[in-house]
């Protein structure tokens, strides 16, 4: 290796050191927040009992709550938070549009339309029925948007907005005509992590895990694409292939997250902006940071959703909406619109 090469490598390592430190710090924070979230809820359970429930399960009410209600819920928050945040980072990179979020692919509208249609026709009853309908609806909507808008980011965004408008309008009309369908949709329409412990989550969570790994593997190629298609071509990146793969990842990540938790806005839009500065223009770091910060944001919001009311819960989507606005304004003011 030449002297110049060694110098460049050393400089790169120096740049990466604080980023690695930040990532490790984020992971530690994520672990801490996850543990705290398992200890927080409507029923007061001592930390000792929480630990005992995890390590020495006896089947008492406290242990059931920790193991069968809170722990799966924390796991779901981590998966959904990571899925939404990473899909947000991917769509913003792909569309080169800082205001893009996963819903722009029509995923949320597709899931909502499918649940409305399914309820009207009677096959979206129960959690499994709703989950299945939401998965099918979101995937079909995203595939349609991707098929029509795959050639350019602008076309992709316009197609997503148009399809969202059409599906939302038709679904609204159906709900207005069918009160029971409206009821079924109402329960799903405000995203929540509550009561998902009885839903069949194995497949959606596996899909999310696989796609998160896929996003990391694709991130270097996206780095080139972020510089523009011409530069990406020059660097040897297969633009069409990378874009198609990114669309698949965004579709599955946001579709699975929306299917299991309902629409949770702002996480996909907000989290990438919060980590854009430390990522310093690197898509791999952006993906890694969003993968850690997304779960942290959702876990904190979910804890808030559990303790805000004296009885019952506030859906987590309401809390993220309250957190999302101020956090986004803070990010814009802190880093400037240019960085977005």
């Amino acid at each position: 290796m030449t002297v110049a090469g060694r110098t460049s490598e050393a400089a790169g390592e120096r740049r990466a050191a604080p980023q690695i430190g930040l990532l490790v710090g984020g992971l530690v924070l994520l672990a801490a927040v996850a543990v705290v979230s398992i200890g927080v809820g409507a029923r007061s359970i001592s930390p000792t009992e929480v630990v005992r429930a995890l390590l020495d399960y006896q089947g008492t009410d406290d242990h059931v709550i920790v193991r069968d209600v809170r722990a799966p819920r924390a796991l779901l928050a981590v998966a959904v938070g990571a899925a939404l945040a990473v899909s947000g980072a991917l769509i913003q990179t792909l569309a080169r549009n800082p205001l893009a979020e996963p819903g722009i692919l029509g995923v949320t509208a597709g899931a909502g339309f499918a649940i409305t249609l399914g309820s009207g026709l009677g096959f979206a009853a129960g959690q499994a029925g709703q989950l299945g309908s939401a998965v099918v609806g979101s995937v079909l909507a995203a595939l349609l948007v991707a098929a029509v808008g795959r050639r350019s980011p602008l076309r992709l965004v316009l197609t997503g907005v148009a399809l969202t408008a059409v599906l939302s309008g038709v679904a609204l009309g159906m709900r207005l005509m069918l009160p029971d369908t409206f009821d079924a949709y109402r329960f799903w329409s405000v995203g929540s992590l509550a009561a998902r412990e009885q839903a069949p989550l194995a497949w959606p969570l596996t899909a999310i895990a696989v796609c998160l790994v896929g996003a990391l593997l694709l991130s270097r190629a996206l780095n080139a694409l972020a510089l523009g298609e011409t530069v990406a071509h020059t660097l040897g990146a297969g633009v069409g292939r990378v874009r198609a793969m990114a669309l698949v990842l965004i579709t599955v990540l946001s579709g699975a997250a929306t299917a299991v938790a309902g629409p949770i806005l702002f996480v996909g839009l907000m989290v990438p902006h919060l980590v854009r500065k430390p990522a310093a223009g690197s898509v791999p770091w952006l993906i890694l940071y969003t993968m850690v910060l997304g779960p942290i944001v959702l876990l904190v919001a979910d804890m808030g959703s559990r303790v805000l009311l004296p009885t019952g819960e506030v859906p987590v989507a309401v809390v993220t909406a309250f957190l999302g606005g101020p956090m986004l304004i803070w990010a814009v003011r802190r880093y400037g619109a240019g960085s977005l």
């Binding site: 409507a42 009410d61 509550a194 009885t311």
Partner: peptide, 25 residues
């Protein structure tokens, strides 16, 4: 009810599932 509300809320409430043992134990 823990906190009385208007109408049916005076005689029914909507606790979290976690509160089931406390509520019906």
């Amino acid at each position: 009810v823990k906190k009385k509300g208007p109408g049916s809320r005076a005689v029914s409430e909507y606790p979290s599932l976690e509160e089931l043992p406390e509520s019906l134990g």
